[in-house]
Design a protein around this nucleic acid. Structure first.
Lengths: 130, 130
DNA sequence: CTGTGTGCAAACACTTTGCAGGTGT
DNA sequence: ACACCTGCAAAGTGTTTGCACACAG
């Protein structure tokens, strides 16, 4: 039910494809690329459609992109707080939100204006650190 | 002279191509993609060669990559301090290092281990803010 | 002389676009 | 009914790879 409500709240057409993709995001605690989504879909979807869906989700603010060096862009559900860390594990290659960790204590130089931020830490996650 | 010295310090073959690319980095204060470099080269070079050069520079630690959502990977000369901000301007699309600004005051959750970080602020730079 | 760099061509991965037909409202 | 979504095919970027030759050490 959650996915349909969300789409409705954002004034998006409720289609089977979008519900399925959003369900995958709601169940996942790591960032997902188009391929990751395709792999998790029970019924295959066209790649272009997934890209278009991701674009719509991004534009409406349901998800936000996390670009990772050397691989396809991953998307995560947008959560509070706005400014927080992402963590990319070099072992399992997953990207996740460290939503509890907030960044503070920096100030931009004169004349610079912030629109958004993207803080990525690369390392080994707790799951792979055993 | 600076470029040749640098290559020598890093035990890399000193070739015309590498010197030219490194000179471009030394003159630039913004991040450069393969295309940016090609555009600044007086004598055109093969794209594959530029990519290979960037790879070598990255592996030896001369530059480091800054991946930016929706465009080609940009590279910047590696500078101290290690952990600092990058700024991407939505207007001029340049990426630059705010090397003076250091990040502090965050702590990773139990079990996570940091290898490197990549902090990107997206907004309007001081040049475009007039 | 030997190992490494370079250009060329081809291939690959990621993403976007036009169009025709299908679906949600 | 109309607007929007989807699949298909094609094309557009960004990036890597194999090979033969050129060059630095």
């Amino acid at each position: 039910m959650k996915a349909k409500e969300l789409l409705d709240n954002y004034n998006l057409y409720i289609t089977e494809g979008r519900v399925n993709i959003l369900d995958i995001f709601l169940k996942s605690n790591v960032g997902l690329s188009e391929k990751d989504i395709q792999d998790r879909l029970s019924k295959k979807s066209d790649r272009a459609t997934i890209y278009r869906t991701l674009k719509v989700f991004k534009e409406t603010g349901i998800v936000h992109p996390v670009s990772a060096e050397g691989s396809a862009t991953k998307y995560v559900l947008k959560k509070e707080p706005q400014e927080h860390l992402h963590f990319k594990c070099t072992k399992c290659r997953n990207i996740s939100c460290l939503a509890d960790i907030q960044i503070s204590g920096y100030e931009l130089p004169q004349g610079y204006k912030k629109i958004e931020s993207n803080f990525l830490i690369i390392g080994i996650c707790n799951e792979c650190n055993n």
